[in-house]
Deep mutational scan, measured.
Amino acid sequence: EDDHHMEFCRVCKDGGELLCCDTCPSSYHIHCLNPPLPEIPNGEWLCPRCTCP
């Protein structure tokens, strides 16, 4: 699979289990988001950068 997502968290710059945005290459740990997510959501997810007006 050709995955163009970042291999590190945009916030802390560390790797591991990352949540990938469905519209851009950004990846995040769920605990690095503000507010943090309790678990990885099902379905499409947009990062804070893509949901800002």
Score class of each variant (00 low, 15 high):
residue 37 L to T: 06
residue 52 C to I: 07
residue 20 C to G: 14
residue 14 D to Q: 15
residue 41 P to V: 08
residue 27 S to L: 11
residue 51 T to E: 14
residue 29 H to V: 00
residue 33 L to Y: 01
residue 3 D to G: 05
residue 48 P to E: 11
residue 16 G to F: 03
residue 1 E to V: 11
residue 13 K to F: 06
residue 29 H to K: 00
residue 36 P to Y: 03
residue 7 E to G: 06
residue 31 H to M: 10
residue 24 C to I: 02
residue 21 C to L: 00
residue 49 R to I: 13
residue 28 Y to H: 03
residue 26 S to L: 10
residue 48 P to D: 09
residue 39 E to G: 11
residue 41 P to I: 09
residue 27 S to V: 11
residue 18 L to W: 02
residue 44 E to R: 12
residue 29 H to R: 00
residue 24 C to Q: 00
residue 17 E to S: 07
residue 31 H to C: 11
residue 11 V to N: 09
residue 47 C to M: 02
residue 44 E to H: 11
residue 16 G to N: 07
residue 2 D to R: 13
residue 31 H to N: 14
residue 26 S to E: 13
residue 40 I to W: 11
residue 52 C to G: 15
residue 41 P to S: 06
residue 38 P to A: 12
residue 52 C to K: 15
residue 47 C to W: 01
residue 50 C to Y: 00
residue 48 P to V: 03
residue 43 G to S: 10
residue 10 R to Y: 12
residue 15 G to A: 08
residue 22 D to C: 08
residue 29 H to S: 02
residue 51 T to C: 08
residue 16 G to S: 05
residue 14 D to L: 13
residue 40 I to S: 12
residue 11 V to D: 09
residue 37 L to P: 13
residue 45 W to L: 03
residue 22 D to R: 11
residue 28 Y to W: 06
residue 21 C to T: 00
residue 35 P to Q: 06
residue 7 E to Y: 01
residue 11 V to S: 08
residue 51 T to P: 13
residue 47 C to D: 02
residue 46 L to M: 08
residue 52 C to Q: 15
residue 21 C to I: 01
residue 47 C to K: 03
residue 51 T to W: 09
residue 24 C to S: 01
residue 6 M to D: 13
residue 35 P to N: 05
residue 26 S to D: 09
residue 3 D to A: 06
residue 2 D to F: 15
residue 10 R to V: 11
residue 40 I to T: 12
residue 4 H to Y: 14
residue 31 H to T: 11
residue 25 P to H: 12
residue 8 F to P: 04
residue 14 D to H: 07
residue 48 P to C: 01
residue 19 L to E: 02
residue 33 L to Q: 03
residue 38 P to D: 11
residue 18 L to C: 01
residue 10 R to K: 15
residue 46 L to F: 13
residue 22 D to F: 12
residue 22 D to L: 10
residue 16 G to K: 08
residue 50 C to P: 01
residue 50 C to E: 02
residue 9 C to F: 02
residue 36 P to K: 14
residue 25 P to D: 07
residue 29 H to E: 01
residue 26 S to V: 08
residue 25 P to G: 09
residue 30 I to P: 13
residue 19 L to C: 10
residue 34 N to D: 09
residue 37 L to M: 09
residue 35 P to R: 04
residue 43 G to W: 03
residue 52 C to W: 11
residue 12 C to T: 01
residue 26 S to P: 02
residue 28 Y to Q: 02
residue 8 F to M: 10
residue 53 P to S: 04
residue 28 Y to G: 03
residue 2 D to I: 15
residue 32 C to Y: 01
residue 45 W to D: 04
residue 15 G to Y: 06
residue 15 G to D: 06
residue 44 E to A: 10
residue 1 E to F: 05
residue 16 G to C: 00
residue 41 P to M: 07
residue 1 E to R: 02
residue 4 H to D: 15
residue 50 C to V: 01
residue 13 K to G: 12
residue 13 K to C: 08
residue 2 D to N: 14
residue 13 K to R: 10
residue 43 G to K: 13
residue 29 H to Y: 01
residue 9 C to E: 04
residue 35 P to V: 04
residue 24 C to R: 02
residue 10 R to L: 12
residue 19 L to T: 13
residue 31 H to I: 06
residue 2 D to K: 15
residue 18 L to R: 04
residue 24 C to H: 00
residue 33 L to N: 02
residue 28 Y to S: 03
residue 25 P to C: 10
residue 11 V to P: 01
residue 42 N to G: 13
residue 42 N to T: 14
residue 32 C to V: 00
residue 10 R to I: 12
residue 9 C to D: 03
residue 21 C to M: 00
residue 44 E to K: 14
residue 16 G to R: 04
residue 49 R to W: 08
residue 37 L to V: 10
residue 23 T to L: 07
residue 38 P to Q: 14
residue 19 L to F: 06
residue 40 I to N: 10
residue 50 C to R: 00
residue 29 H to A: 01
residue 53 P to H: 15
